[in-house]
Amino acid sequence: MSQVNAFTAELTPEVSANRKSEHPVSPAFLNRWSPRAFSDRPISDQDLNTILEAAHWAPSSYNDQPWRFIVAKTGEQLQEFHDILNEFNRTWASKAPVLLLVASDKLRANGDPNGAHAFDAGAAWGYIALQASLLGIASHAIGGFDREKARTLLNVPEQYDLHAVIALGYKGDPEQLPEGLREREVPNSRVELSQVVFEGKVKP
Rank of each mutant, 00 (worst) to 15 (best):
146 D>S: 08
93 A>F: 01
87 E>I: 08
30 L>D: 00
116 A>Q: 15
131 Q>S: 08
1 M>W: 14
56 H>D: 09
114 N>H: 11
50 T>Y: 10
124 A>E: 01
44 S>R: 06
165 V>I: 07
144 G>N: 07
31 N>T: 00
34 S>R: 11
52 L>T: 06
169 G>Q: 08
99 L>N: 01
137 I>A: 08
108 R>P: 03
31 N>E: 09
23 H>T: 15
62 Y>P: 00
197 V>R: 07
194 S>F: 02
28 A>Y: 01
119 F>R: 11
199 E>H: 12
69 F>H: 08
80 E>R: 13
63 N>C: 05
102 V>R: 10
11 L>W: 10
33 W>M: 07
96 A>K: 02
67 W>T: 10
80 E>M: 08
78 L>E: 04
90 R>P: 14
89 N>A: 11
132 A>V: 02
28 A>W: 01
183 E>S: 13
86 N>K: 08
80 E>C: 06
164 A>P: 05
203 K>G: 09
17 A>T: 08
198 F>N: 15
138 A>G: 13
131 Q>I: 00
138 A>D: 15
122 G>H: 00
102 V>K: 08
80 E>H: 12
139 S>I: 00
84 I>R: 09
80 E>I: 04
82 H>L: 00
189 S>N: 13
185 E>F: 06
63 N>Q: 13
57 W>F: 11
4 V>P: 01
199 E>C: 09
149 K>C: 12
80 E>F: 01
92 W>K: 06
51 I>C: 02
45 D>G: 03
125 W>V: 15
156 V>H: 03
134 L>H: 07
126 G>K: 01
92 W>I: 03
76 E>Q: 13
116 A>T: 14
96 A>F: 05
37 A>S: 14
86 N>Y: 10
85 L>I: 00
59 P>K: 12
47 D>V: 03
127 Y>P: 10
78 L>K: 09
91 T>R: 10
123 A>G: 10
96 A>M: 05
74 T>K: 08
67 W>I: 09
